[in-house]
Design a protein around this nucleic acid. Sequence first.
RNA 1: GCCGACGUAGCUCAACGGUUGAGCAUCCGCCUUGUAAGCGGAGGGUUGUGGGUUCGAUUCCCACCGUCGGCUCCA
Length: 597
Amino acid sequence: MNAMNPADYHESDLYRIRHSTAHVMAAAVLEKFPEGKVAIGPPIEHGFYYDFDLPRSLTEEDLVEIEARMKELLKEKHEFVYEELSPEQAQALFADQPYKLELIRDILERGTDEYGEKTAEPVLSIYRSGAFVDLCRGPHVESTKEIPPKAVKLLNVAGAYWRGDSDRPMLQRIYGTAWESPKELRQYLTWLEEVKKRDHRRLIKDLDLLSFHEEAGPGLAYWHPKGAMMRKIIEDFWRDKHIEGGYDFAYTPHIGKAWLWEKSGHLDFYQESMYAAMDVDGQDYYLKPMNCPFHILIYKTALRSYRELPLRWAELGTVYRYEKSGVLHGLMRVRGFTQDDAHIICTPEQIEDEVLRVLRFSLEMLRAFGFEEFAAYLSTRPEKAVGEPARWEQAQEALRRAIDAEGLEYAVDEGGGAFYGPKIDLKIRDALGRSWQLTTIQFDFNLPERFDMTYVGEDGAEHRPYMVHRALLGSLERFFGILVEHYAGAFPVWIAPEQARIIPIADRHIEFARQVEDQLRQAHLRVSTDASASRMNAKIRDAQLQKVPYMLVVGDREMEAASVAVRLRSGKNLGAMPVAEFIEIAEQAVASHGLEA
RNA sequence: GCCGACGUAGCUCAACGGUUGAGCAUCCGCCUUGUAAGCGGAGGGUUGUGGGUUCGAUUCCCACCGUCGGCUCCA
């Protein structure tokens, strides 16, 4: 399911098919609910949707019915006929469609199309197909005969605000998908099943990695021993890399007085997403939503010289944010999480080198975890911003040059930066072709000002340092969830919580199995022996389901030869080999960060 | 936060206006096994929580909590 680039997609036949299918769906819905109001219905990445204002909530059965009716309509082979209208004609045609009237007003007054995008000149165009007519800029297929009915499927219903505005009415959105052929639809549905199979919320349960507890608070993750082992491995690797990368570490508290958050501005801007204050000896304390103010306090414990810059301070800092209940999603969106945070404090002259260094560092880190495809996003100065324009300019240039130096493809989000500074975000593509934002590298012209951070320059005067926040993996929880889905739980050997499982065939082999286990443990492999009463086949099945990379079967023959019969979770059987040889193979896999071999 | 759906044993799911069932897992036996489930037995749920309707609710209604699909949001 690799995505086309947006411009190509917009011009494609597939786009037309989906856009037209959305119209056919709207036609079917209006037949069923003649009093229904229609909003907008664009193509999206893997299909289309259409928003409706209907007299009642749609059910699963409605969807089945609507889909069946759509297929009939498609078979009737309606032409899509384009027409341009005068404002009066358009208003008359859509007199009982308030959402369309609003769109017409916008097209005329704001020069935008029905999706709110700017257009060259306002044109009120419609497409007729059968009895259905919709305000629409197109493009569409010539006729519904271009849409194979068996390549169309409705997927689900969800609520969606009119114009995406939470102050406006909630509409019902029907999501559907459409393809050029039934075969492509089947492939897409298979892909959706694969997505579901890899869902980290399922896998963290099946693999006994983490849990959540309703009784103890939503959005708060509990790391079980196996998940904790993996996290430890990730953290150890992360720390070692940071030492090599010239970072120092900090540890800071989890709570701080209101003063800190007033000073940082968090209470002004983000209070609604902070956990409520707790009263301690008559003072308000808050759980930290970010680590930066703490690092700044450390910075300010000394008069800093330009000679000690750049400072690079990293912390796996656990923060708490009160995310709205409806947005929590497994490990991907939680209320308590650990950022792989760092702050770089440097002089203006150093900024370019530092940015490039971070970017390279990030790519190296992400590659180590098996991600190979990256895309960069540069977000620049918004209308409302703090900090001198010259600094913004310099920072943006530094970011741009770093991206160029690494040869990354990137998109610019003009005016998309935070009010306090420009940033680069890096997205990775996972094994299913989905992209996830991980790394963020953000300038901050706000906090150094608010906390009056300074350093003494060569000239003996005080200067304001640059400060860059960066998180490479983002949050450990979320990164973990992404890793789980990327590998479908079959982690590379170096990360796998259990690298090898020894499977004695009969009880008389258990003692030998323990000896082997001990040898492997001495070689720093994570290993266990399945001494249960089950048969070998059941033990293998169990290890397979737990996605253990190496299964070492030991029976009479192995005991005789002091060997292990190595089975990989891929199903491949390497046969018997001396224990030392297996250790070598496993160590090789660990060192290469690869899968079992 | 908003719209909709859902919440039954550790897990996956079934059933029902009238004293909840299965598979897997667990425990106990028997079997001692050669590359994805050997066989038998036992234990385990005041059906998310709190109200209401009813002779009677797990089932119907309301509220709350949580989960799921989205929307808004994501410093």
